[in-house]
Amino acid sequence: MSIIEDVREIIASHGKLPVDVATLADDADLYAAGLSSFASVQLMLALEERFDIEFPETMLNRKTFASIGAISSAVAELAPQERVA
């Protein structure tokens, strides 16, 4: 499974979005789609658990979680190589 599919699945279960994640493009604004700051933390925790990563302080901002694409690139940057392959 690619990172982006994993990310989509985690958003679907933890993002608490009022819309179906499948209808969102990779670059769609998740905040405009209804992502709350509380849900973004839960999302972050679920991503840390799934990919065995830890978001550094510099990534804990709105930009990192602005879209499915942005989250996926952050995860790709942090994930251990064997999980990305």
Binding site: L17, P18, Y31, A32, A33, L35, S36
Partner: peptide, 10 residues
Amino acid sequence: RAHPQAASSD
């Protein structure tokens, strides 16, 4: 909200 179809946080 930004428009009538917008999410409550938009």
